[in-house]
Design a protein around this nucleic acid. Structure first.
Lengths: 148, 148
DNA sequence: ACACTAGTTGATAGACTTTTTCAAAAGGAA
DNA sequence: TTCCTTTTGAAAAAGTCTATCAACTAGTGT
């Protein structure tokens, strides 16, 4: 059984066709999507899907950790979240998003900050941006002709 | 001349009373604020301020790096940004926000990620959350009586 | 397989948030 | 001060998100 199904079931929630369609939509393209985009994508496999359900489901999934909120272009978008403490790395050209594992390394940062500020740090948000290998190739091909 | 004024002037923008009031509002309380909250605070020193101006100004300030967007409670809020690469640390009880310097340490993370993924990393978003010293004291005083 | 029950859904309306528009006002250079 | 351009406030428009509710459905027990 898939992890997200198990998490839902364990918390007394149901596994429904709309929810399945929304998960699939999030996973089909590896870019963070807005609720509107999720609706559009998910309707390809489940045409009856309503917008309200998308919002409800994204909120639910965010709560149980199945999706993650990503700050992109000044707004908040959604991407599937692998369990375990992974962080998103987003291409600022094409939006392609991959995950990386960086917790071991930021433990040092957190320890230092706790010492300096007296805070007890309990959560962190780490998000990197850059240019993915594909977009690097494209830029090399096109030369400096157009910054796109 | 204050940094934000210099940045504005250098990019051909004007230093106006509404903008001054908005900066002051952001700085007066050390919590990330919503546009609506900024309006309310800034009107204490400039009662005629309009909501549209708050939105326009926050967007402008975000572009030139004078304010920073903070993901708080599922929404995006605004806080003044000290120049230099500082990151926000937000109290999840009271919202108090301080800045910390953590770039030296995440350089290692970034190098590793670049090696692993082939991305060229050019930006990062790091935000920590926890309990500030004041809220720690309060919790200690009140015992376990109410999780608040 | 069937029926039952509580969680879930889609559609619409409503609330809220953000942007656009435009005439009036104000900053800053000469 | 004068002039030109940017900026502003108010209102309208557009966009985003949530609440409501009858109809539907997943998952349980029979």
């Amino acid at each position: 059984m898939n992890t997200w199904k198990k998490i839902l079931a364990d918390s007394g929630k149901r596994i429904t066709r709309p929810r399945q369609a929304i998960i699939d939509a999030l996973r089909c393209c590896d870019k963070p999507q807005s609720p509107e985009q999720v609706l559009e994508t998910a309707r390809q496999s489940y045409p009856n899907l309503g917008l309200a359900t998308v919002y409800r489901t994204l909120n639910l999934f965010a709560e149980i950790g199945v999706v993650r909120l990503i700050q992109y272009d000044g707004t908040i978008r959604y991407a599937p979240a692998t369990l375990g403490h992974l962080h998103p790395l987003i291409c600022i050209e094409c939006g392609k998003t991959v995950e990386f594992h960086g917790d071991d390394d930021i433990v040092d940062v957190i320890n230092q900050v706790e010492k300096d500020t007296g805070f007890i740090v309990s959560e962190h948000l780490l998000q990197l941006g850059g240019i993915c290998p594909e977009c690097q190739s494209k830029q090399a091909e096109n030369g400096k002709s157009h910054g796109c």
